[in-house]
Design a binder for these strands. Structure first.
Lengths: 182, 182
DNA sequence: ACCTGAACACCGTTCAAGT
DNA sequence: ACCTGAACACCGTTCAAGT
């Protein structure tokens, strides 16, 4: 656990600027964003960028964190609601996470199953929440039992960008969901 | 159509050396192989590399060409044989194409649906052969009709490397195949 | 016709100096 | 404690000179 001492005011401001610039550049370039450019766009020196985000992946993790937390919350709500199609419903939301970002699906797919990745830590609450959701569906007999929750997320995240509808949903998620039944 | 004038003997030899070095480096680094290194490993100048292969993708296309042609042949045999599980059988073979190469699945997945990519041209015979195979299965009613053959290949190629068995087959291909039924 | 390698450009990363 | 930007390293790409 890092001790989370409050940042100095200027450091705080720089961090926000970097995150803003990062979000914009990730939206344009995806996982391969030109890192140096983030510092330029934020109007700070390169050293400052590296001080706040050790690697590209750390920046991407910070950019995506909100979405992941939102999805974790959604999974927990679905768990409480007892919705019979909770897994399907949630995977349709999850499927759209990487869509505003080029090439992010592949990156997320790999990060999900790699505990050493910087993005990995940001995914933990989401993984835990979805695991519960899937576990319940498996016990209820509506989903195959030989599926690992995190691996399944990795597969969904890898669905190619090329086969997506205008709203960002994959045209092949239905095929996959159909295949989840026992 | 390029006129295919035979290469000079030294050019021929260099091309082979580059292809060999390329295959080895692709096996190690996948789609992101250090391009310059190919020239070094082949013992030729950088200029020679660029003369033979305009881009990384052109080199990868040449490396993969044999496999694609082999898969096209297999699809044609399956078509002739009238095998009832031809689509499944063939997709299991296709699924393993990118497995010796790190990160190649994502690259292939994108190339399949991008006619401008260098790899695309090398895939044409395979695409044509699989389209026939899928078309027959769809007419026979064993596979959903709302699937486009090339998109389906793009989805299979994108199945993540992390969820593969030791023999290179995806643990989630079964889920997908199950979902193909009408 | 083809090959070579110097030269250029671009980008990522580090770190000494500064506030 | 944090910031800056010069300096270094690495790699991709081009092209003038050579066979």
């Amino acid at each position: 656990m890092t001790s989370q001492r409050p940042l100095r005011v200027d450091a705080q401001r720089n961090r926000s600027a970097l995150l803003n610039a990062g979000a914009q550049l990730v939206a344009i370039y995806g996982a391969e964003l030109p890192f140096e450019e983030v510092a330029r766009a934020a109007g700070v020196g390169k050293g400052t960028l590296y001080r706040h985000f050790a690697t590209r992946d750390h920046l991407i993790a910070a950019v995506l964190r909100e979405r992941f937390d939102g999805l974790a919350a959604e999974a927990n709500e679905l768990l409480d609601s007892g919705n019979a199609h909770a897994v399907e419903t949630w995977l349709r939301s999850f499927d759209r996470v990487p869509t505003p970002f080029r090439g992010l699906g592949a990156m997320l797919s790999a990060a999900l199953v790699d505990d050493a990745s910087a993005v990995s830590a940001a995914c933990i609450p989401m993984k835990v929440a979805f695991s519960r959701l899937l576990g319940r569906a498996q016990r209820d007999g509506t989903v195959r039992t030989n599926l690992h929750p995190v691996e399944l997320l990795s597969v969904v995240a890898a669905l190619p960008e090329s086969v997506r509808n205008d709203d960002g949903s994959s045209r092949y998620l239905d095929v996959l969901l159909r295949g989840l039944r026992p």
